[in-house]
Write a protein that binds this DNA or RNA. Structure first.
Lengths: 228, 228
DNA sequence: TAGCTCCTGTATCGATGATACTTCGATGCA
DNA sequence: TGCATCGAAGTATCATCGATACAGGAGCTA
């Protein structure tokens, strides 16, 4: 006995917690199970982490290291918008590959509290939108663009975890939708009928609800006749 | 004593749980606290609900009743896209007003399991996208459009709850971005320079990374000279 | 060697979700 | 009317969990 390996015990506790969390993603884990895995008793764990939340924080920190350590997450293509695309995909891939970490990082919904470590990727994203704004490529404030990207990215990732169904097409669709929204560009459908329908539908007060509905019916009929 | 009011106790247990959950949104609640609030012992609760999850399920069901019961959630404007807009706003407003319910309904991220009651609003949304598709107003499959709207709507709501910061502008921006993405319409920025930049940036392999970067720099300079 | 600090173990607390067993009243049926 | 059945509720108890008070020992320093 008496290894007295210094900081080793602490690292082994984190590693054991990581394993348990990865084994049952989203579920709660027992401190005693962590201790048993390391061969140590509860007070030792409390000596290092003070509380369960302390251990969780350490695990989350480790998770973000893992996330941002994946070289793809930090290297830049030189173009901020392309970097946002790449960052989006890395984000989703990390969440699907590490649902245990991800739910700890972004899945614990409790009003007013978010892990401090979240600030790191958030900061990277803000830097990207700031660069894009400096190139006059955004149609919304840089901060709002960053928030827009983040909420959609987290939303699509959490949803895929909950449904246990990776959906690359959906992720890509949402990603491009977001980028189109913040850059004001995108691939519009070249269809005057469709465009007219949405303009009319978005302003039902101009013609009144009844006439607007009728207008859309007529436009639909036109579209069907043409394509049918 | 001996009220023996039949199903009354069950309802009072649900009501007490609802109060406790609303009092500490996102936090866990104690079955004993629920029982104390009603003046009943644990086995009685277990008689009605079988387990804690049983009670939670009943509460979630009640939450969805409340959500869909809000008249605004079900009445139709006659236009499916407008209904999606309205449904989005009702969704966000409900989440912010009832973070306790909302975190139970959509905030419990655990791979592979989502409350059955979630199917109800999901079904409504699918019906709307199906109607929009029937009017040839979608550029993506109806199912994907529904999923797109849902993940973004949940994402923006959860994020606002976590940050404890309502952000109507962000919600509206994401909402319109989603609608533009699924309908293929939207308000493009009338700026050829910006459009050219995004086209170039999205295809860095055509010119190569170096030349693409340079091109964007030049376009940026042009944009600045013009607007400055 | 005395003393100090850092780890670690023993034992225990209070709270929690869950259950076995019993009690009591209402109801249905002969 | 008398009896059996069933639903509703209480008593008592478990196992587990997060957390803590306290003691002991290893190692270093003076």
């Amino acid at each position: 006995m008496a290894e007295h390996a210094g900081g080793d015990t602490r690292q082994r506790l984190i590693a054991a917690a990581v394993d348990l969390i990865a084994a049952t993603p989203g579920e709660d884990f027992s401190l005693r199970a962590v201790c048993d895995a390391v061969g140590v008793k509860l007070p030792t764990l409390y000596h290092f982490f003070g509380s369960k939340q302390g251990l969780v924080d350490a695990v989350v920190e480790h998770g973000f290291d893992l996330y941002l350590g994946g070289k793809a997450a930090t290297e830049s293509s030189g173009d901020p918008i392309q970097d946002i695309r790449a960052g989006w995909d890395v984000h989703v891939a990390f969440g699907l590959a590490n649902p245990g970490f991800y739910t700890l990082m972004y899945g614990k919904v409790r009003p007013g509290h978010s892990p401090a470590a979240q600030a790191r990727p958030s900061e990277i994203l803000r830097a990207l939108t700031a660069r894009a704004a400096a190139q006059h490529r955004l149609v919304v404030p840089s901060e709002q663009a960053a928030a827009h990207v983040l909420v959609a990215n987290i939303g699509v990732t959490l949803r895929q975890i909950v449904l246990a169904t990776p959906d690359p097409a959906l992720s890509a669709a949402v990603r491009e939708g977001v980028i189109a929204a913040i850059t004001g560009t995108g691939t519009l459908r070249d269809d005057p009928l469709a465009a007219a329908m949405e303009i009319a539908a978005a302003h039902p007060d101009v013609l009144g609800r009844t006439q607007t509905t009728l207008l859309i019916e007529w436009l639909t009929a036109l579209a069907e006749r043409r394509s049918g």
